[in-house]
Design a protein around this nucleic acid. Structure first.
Lengths: 233, 233
DNA sequence: CATTTGTTGTGCTACTTTTCACAAAAACTA
DNA sequence: TAGTTTTTGTGAAAAGTAGCACAACAAATG
């Protein structure tokens, strides 16, 4: 009854909401826990538990009413519409995100982009671009709370400070520098390089003959023997 | 001693390795668990436990030898260098990723990009672009195992099938459609829209006066009362 | 109305991952 | 050498998370 509202749960709820919106637009009226589970890749029992936790009831046979569910999820999650964000660093990734279709489907709006060299940014990105020096005034004037950080690695922490000082409350950080959440500013780090390396690792691991743990253990053991004789600390 | 090698652990190891590389290039020789913990945003005890799990020893006072650590991590994680990937869907995000700096720092190489309309892709992306129809032959000829999927939502599942048939073993999926890992093909989904929505939610939650769970509960309760009289299932 | 079918709701269990807390050891200090 | 400091290494406790299994119930069927 009193929900945990843990991070993964919130992400699941957001995904449910997206699916429900799609189903609704397809004319569906009801949905079962296993449909939703399939769609977002979790067990049906978890879907039911999520809803039960939030006191969202279904019908013992007819599943869940889509209208009701999505309405309730909107209440819980808040409508993200009308939310406005800025993008700091209009390089490749920043520009790509600025034009990300999802944003133009009404989810939220990119109010402006910022860059050290606004004149180099192609006008095709379709949002106003200002020099980095104007972040603070813009954020204050327009009451912006959330920013996307997509600057080069070496100015990451500097821009982080600027954003915090400007009063930004949340940053989606595409920089490979891991920024830390503080009381006033929540950070979500997305490290594309690490994601790919991770995928590579999983693939290799998956391709290995038997259990990885075993083979890893053996690698480590070999190494320990090698190293023992020269420089084990 | 026999490590779990769970997903989060692998990500931490990848991050350690990145940090260690940087520290090494700065001329450092030793590092403490709290340095690494700070750098990747976890508790020092967890860093030590990670290393202890992998039988990577430190010095009771002098911390860990960077050389040794990064060498061992390379053994465990495998060198990602010389790995080659393809990008399917050379729209904004695909092109951005193709030019992502991290990839040119020697992590891995983008072998080619694919698109339905290769002629529309700017040659500035710096990799060869082929029509989607050539994916299968290219993957087989060049022994590609990992792909990035950044096509529009509506062709996501179609391209997923093409990649699986071509023998791709891992996909980093930037499409908002949640793809599912199978025996032969590991999927990592990155849903930028959900990430931003999530950030918004966390920010709002963080901004709320008291405990969210309480306020959420009250929202839900109100709603239940409202709804009770009309259409609670 | 009785029976069957299919789906929810959830207590309990099992598991995974993180943190705590402190002994052990190495390195300094004098 | 004795004492002090600093940091590792780790068993045990805690926190969090997901899955199972089945009772409860609504709808459909005959």
């Amino acid at each position: 009854m009193k929900g945990n509202l843990n991070k993964e749960l919130v992400i699941r709820l957001l995904k449910y909401r997206r699916i429900l919106t799609q189903l609704k637009s397809l004319g569906f009226e009801k949905v079962f826990s296993n449909n939703l589970g399939d769609a977002i890749g979790v067990a049906p029992a978890l879907v039911r538990k999520d809803f039960s936790l939030l006191v969202l009831g279904g019908n013992k046979r007819g599943g869940y009413r889509i209208d009701y569910l999505s309405e309730q999820l909107n209440k819980i999650l808040g409508k993200t519409r009308e939310q406005r964000i800025i993008i700091v660093g209009m390089g490749k990734i920043g520009s790509a995100v600025a034009q990300y279709k999802g944003f133009h489907q009404g989810d939220f709006e990119v109010a402006a982009g910022f860059d050290i060299a606004p004149e180099n940014v192609l006008p095709t990105v379709g949002i106003p671009i200002y020099p980095t020096s104007e972040i603070q005034s813009f954020v204050e004037r327009e009451h912006i709370e959330v920013a996307i950080l997509s600057v080069p690695e070496d100015v990451s922490t500097e821009c982080h400070k600027i954003l915090k000082n400007a009063g930004i409350r949340g940053i989606l950080n595409f920089t490979p520098i891991e920024l830390k959440t503080t009381q006033n500013c929540i950070i979500h780090n997305i490290n594309i390089g690490v994601e790919i390396e991770n995928l590579f690792f999983q693939v290799v691991k998956n391709t290995l003959p038997q259990d990885v743990e075993a083979s890893l253990a053996s690698i480590i053991d070999e190494e320990l023997v090698d190293v023992d004789s020269e420089d084990t600390p």
